[in-house]
């Protein structure tokens, strides 16, 4: 039985609510907005703005990590960074070399994560038996704690007792010293790629599932092959998501500390993976120079801000956003 429901409410009289009985003075409604926002603003100020400002303030001081030694040194900490320009990079031990290594690690691992993550997302977007299970498996590396990943990989790749070097050696592929000087950066990049590519899968797969299938049908009718469909439909549709994913992953990887620290540590072979976060940590907690460490972290912060601004500008120029 069909029923009709009138949606016209224009004639319904609005019942005036009686003012609540209160004892004190009343606060105008718009103050409530400020009051309700206040905790969030306070949190942002306390947790984001204050540390950045404090770090900036520290960077102009020589400060011991735990002793009450604190002297204003002006731009000295920054000058130290700037003047540390030994060349070639392989024989320097300071800021520029760490920046160089950080750029290799950050961009290298981000690019591989995008390639692997996007490929996995495209595969997982297809229909096949066991798709749900494979989607779970694809997310697995992201769920494993980083420390477990580091220990596992160190076991698997260890030249003395690791299974992979053993298999490669015994099958005649040859010996690769995964933690040797020539390979250690590649190793760290590969471990990071494996650990973090599911982030890209999650982001892109969600978007892939919302692309209208009719676009593909129409393209097929027009004779477009798989590659052209990917290039002219999938990629443009993913552009917004990829923009955010690339931005976030680059920032995350450029500031990544745990994977590198756990896999290669501070000394010995860690020389070849001493990116800016590791260098900052060593300055702060190794040499106990908090001011110099703060200067390094401020440089990292500013570089990321500049990177983000340029990235946004380029993207806007291409009118994708």
């Amino acid at each position: 039985m069909a029923t009709t429901v009138s949606t016209d409410v224009s004639n319904v009289p609005i019942k005036q609510e009686a003012p609540l009985p209160t004892r004190g003075r009343r606060i105008p409604e718009h103050y409530w907005g400020y009051l309700l926002l206040a905790p969030a603003v306070a949190m942002v100020l306390a947790l984001i703005l204050y540390p950045v400002i404090y770090s900036g303030w520290l960077s102009f001081h020589f400060k011991h990590a735990y002793l009450p030694l604190e002297t204003f040194v002006g731009w000295d900490n920054y000058r130290d960074l700037w003047s540390d320009t030994a060349w070639p990079f392989s024989s320097a031990d300071g800021f520029w070399r760490s920046l160089y290594l950080g750029a290799i690690y950050g961009f290298g691992s981000t690019i591989l994560q995008i390639i692997l993550g996007l490929s996995a997302a495209l595969m997982l977007n297809e229909s096949f038996f066991g798709k749900a299970f494979m989607r779970g498996v694809a997310l697995f590396p992201y769920m494993v704690p980083t420390v477990v990943v580091a220990i596992l990989m160190k076991w698997i790749l260890n030249d003395a007792y690791g299974i992979l070097p053993y298999l490669m050696d015994s099958s005649g592929i040859g010996r690769v010293l995964w933690f040797g000087r020539d390979w250690v950066m590649v190793t760290v990049i590969l471990i990071s790629t494996w650990t973090f590519f599911p982030f890209v899968v999650i982001g892109t797969l969600a978007r892939l599932q919302t692309i209208d299938p009719e676009l593909y049908s129409a393209a097929k009718v027009d004779g477009a092959g798989a590659l052209r469909r990917f290039w002219h439909i999938t990629l443009p549709q993913l552009a917004n998501v990829l923009f955010v994913v690339v931005l976030l992953r680059t920032m995350f990887m450029f500031t990544k500390f745990d994977v590198i620290w756990l896999v290669t540590g501070s000394g010995g072979i860690g020389f070849y993976t001493k990116t800016l976060p590791i260098h900052t940590y060593m300055k702060t907690f190794g040499e106990l120079q908090v001011g110099a460490g703060a200067a390094l972290s401020m440089m990292m912060f500013l570089m990321l801000v500049v990177f983000a601004l340029i990235y946004f500008k380029l993207y806007k120029r291409d009118e994708h956003i």
Binding site: Q16, E17, L20, T22, R23, R25, R26, I27, L35
Partner: peptide, 12 residues
């Protein structure tokens, strides 16, 4: 539409 008001005393 009436302004919603409350007590400053209550917030305090």
């Amino acid at each position: 539409m009436p302004k919603q008001t409350s007590s400053r005393t209550a917030i305090t």
